[in-house]
Design a protein around this nucleic acid. Structure first.
Lengths: 285, 285
DNA sequence: TCATTATGTAGTAAATTTACTATTTTTAAA
DNA sequence: TTTAAAAATAGTAAATTTACTACATAATGA
């Protein structure tokens, strides 16, 4: 029994692959999920404009044994209070609605990412980082801030870490790379030309290339190891929001992985770094 | 409809006040709550050793309209109570456990933050940003990356935006501020000395000071408007992870708020910025 | 014993599912 | 293209399961 943590997201995702009446049912449920959990199969069928067996088939398509079981799963996934369907902010929104929408979208993205975590790629990336002699984190735009954040995390592992936002620096560093160097590219689309070019240049050296980007993208093609992030985000229309959150958490995961790899003996080292900050803060009164 | 947050606890509490057959039903449910949500009234009655109407009466006694409604409430309260606990990564963790833990922690933090969102402070911050002539985002350490991210978001609003990681630059800019300048300080603890000092300097000018930090901290005290983030994170022992995620989403919220404030006429402007990136990407094949 | 409460029986209405049929859509061949 | 066969989709009707109500019986306490 592995109940889907967020059924609505699954429905939303498969919406395009459903046939006519199934899509009608899906829309009716997405419109009023809470109500659906309290409806009978007859009233939901009426609301969707389909027959009762169609609703039943819909339920089975999504892994339920039948309608009641489906309602149960729906209620369970609704219980956390998160709206599991990404909703765009509209101009009719106000202070009471749009913050919630954005938080829900963020939570939703993390939950989806968590379900589809490419553990094998992550494990390999941890290996590579743990062994690297030097690590470069390269990103542009929003991903540059992510790269900066990564720098802040990974310098703790006694490996020299570098970030550069300047594409020319990125190219030159890529060109001068050698054995033991690791280039970590971060990009939501995986299609930013200058970044892909830098990866291409690095690829001609002995360096390893790890990327955190979209599956099948040009950047992924250039990488020895690619951590795929599947975040459905319309970056053409909106700003990247959720994708960078997922990227950050995955980098946290990698950092934790390296920490575990270093073993318990490494803890004092981390503590020393922590301690160095003590005098920079006002004490808690 | 205000469903009881934890139905099982309520049943447990009232156990002594129930009559014989109701007590039997209660025990059967407490024994196997998950199973109860999947049972029919007949099978639950059999499991409890009572008749079906007894089960029905039991349900009504606890505020449900009937057995299906009761099952729904039970399922809901079972779903919510479970995964609300942050779990630390331990050295006994492996690739199959620690990524999930970290994602869960991140999701939890966002869910908690969402429930305690300081909407009034957010609305005020949006006002101030929308009116500002210039905006400075200042943070240090992990928060520097957040500030960088903010810069990337807010320059779109036709307001000059600046970030500096250099504390000396921060001080000097704070000192030279005037009417219409907005300083936006980002800090998890709100106790970083150099940042608080910069805020103090800025406070002596005509500039407005907004901060995204912990309630009651020295930094919060210096601010005209403080957006409190309550994230329980042991930064003494671990790296800051979840707090910066919450900060990022709140900055997204602020950006969305400013966009809404600018109104629909502003959309073409945003679209133009988007378009400027088109030629930097490889086209989707 | 009587009144009151508690519990169970049986029947009914409602809801769900199954099996089957008509229709539409797709596929492949002419 | 056009046509015919195959596959899929969606609905009808009937069977089955489920939940509830009214009523009867049993238990309890005064």
């Amino acid at each position: 029994m592995t109940p889907e943590p967020n059924l609505l997201a699954v429905i939303q995702r498969q919406l395009s692959e459903l046939n006519k009446s199934e899509a009608k049912v899906a829309k009716a449920i997405l419109n009023a999920p809470e109500e659906a959990t309290r409806s009978s199969i007859a009233s939901l069928a009426a609301a969707a404009g389909v027959s009762e067996p169609s609703v039943n088939r819909f339920c089975k398509r999504f892994g339920a044994t039948g309608f009641p079981d489906f309602k149960l799963q729906l209620a369970t996934s609704l219980a956390s209070g998160v709206r599991y369907v990404s909703r765009a902010v509209e101009f009719s929104d106000d202070i009471n609605t749009f913050p919630t929408k954005l938080f829900d979208n963020a939570i939703n993205a993390l939950m989806t990412a968590k379900e589809e975590l490419p553990l094998k790629a992550i494990a390999r990336a941890v290996d590579q980082i743990a062994q690297a002699r030097r690590v470069y984190f390269f990103g542009l735009g929003t991903s540059a801030a992510v790269a900066r954040d990564a720098e802040h995390k990974f310098f703790r592992f006694n490996v020299p870490v570098f970030t550069h936002e300047d594409p020319l620096m990125q190219r030159m560093l890529a060109a001068s790379a050698g054995v033991g160097d690791l280039f970590f590219f971060i990009s939501h689309t995986g299609r930013t030309k200058v970044l892909v070019e830098a990866a291409e240049i690095a690829r001609q050296t002995e360096a390893s290339i790890v990327s955190l980007t979209a599956e099948g993208s040009p950047l992924a093609d250039k990488s020895h190891c690619c951590i795929n992030v599947k975040v459905e985000e319309d970056t053409e229309q909106y700003l990247p929001m959720t994708s960078r959150l997922v990227q950050l958490v995955i980098l946290d995961v990698l950092a934790a992985g390296v920490t575990l790899r270093r073993g318990e003996g490494f803890t004092p080292h981390l503590a020393r770094i922590k301690d160095s900050l003590k005098d920079t803060r006002f004490q808690t009164s």
